[in-house]
């Protein structure tokens, strides 16, 4: 069955000519401005890479007054050519999500709450914890008397979310300290 809505139009008798929106003096919320500036007009475009799977789709972030206003796939990157999946499309709300951790948080032993601390306070104390652990537990020789210089009681887990440069210095730091328990997403 083919419905001919043109006949319905006659029936309804409206017949009003379509207007271009520019001729209408109406505001169009929630349709949003049609002829005015887009939210990305005049925004700075910055190329980034999607933080999810390892297709590494390129994304353009649109920034206005230091704030991210929109994101779109980068049409020039020959792999995604501007397209994205559900996760890649969600970069704006990922960045603006109100669930983000805001400050360094410290939980004392046996405490039932987080306390806000400064980065400096945290890093000082972390360094102290690592040093104490290393000084106490570093194994210089194994049972056979071989030099092993390893720290078994401390570990690093993660992360493929880190960039290459971060991974490189993470590895260097851990081997420098003697850490042997090291693993990340590549094994799971």
């Amino acid at each position: 069955m083919k419905i001919d809505r043109r006949s319905f139009m006659k029936l309804a008798g409206s017949g009003a000519a379509c207007l271009t929106l520019g001729q209408l003096g109406v505001s169009l919320t929630p349709v949003r401005a049609y002829a005015g500036d887009l939210k990305i007009s005049g925004a700075k475009e910055v190329v980034t890479v999607c933080p999810f799977c390892s297709v590494s789709c390129h994304i353009i972030g649109y920034v206005k007054e230091g704030k991210l206003v929109s994101t779109e796939g980068d049409p020039d990157y020959p792999i995604n050519e501007g397209s994205l999946c559900a996760k890649g499309a969600a970069m704006l709300t990922m960045t603006t999500s109100h669930h983000r951790l805001q400050k360094p948080l410290y939980r004392a032993p046996y405490s039932d709450k987080w306390e806000e601390k400064s980065w400096d306070w945290m890093l000082d104390r972390i360094a102290r914890r690592i040093k104490d652990t290393r000084d106490k537990d570093l194994i210089l020789k194994n049972a056979k008397g071989d030099t092993v210089n390893r720290l078994e009681s401390m570990f690093l887990l993660g992360t493929s979310h880190a960039g290459n440069e971060e991974c490189a210095i993470a590895h260097q730091a851990m081997r420098g300290l003697g850490v042997v328990h090291m693993d990340h997403q590549a094994r799971i």
Partner: peptide, 25 residues
């Protein structure tokens, strides 16, 4: 068409693009 029967101009069609739009009216 139906909208116009009650409140003309609340639902519009953009001549240039053909987009059918629900206005804030």
């Amino acid at each position: 068409e139906m909208g116009d029967v009650y409140h003309e101009g609340t639902i519009i069609q953009d001549e240039k693009t053909g987009a059918v739009l629900f206005t804030d009216k």
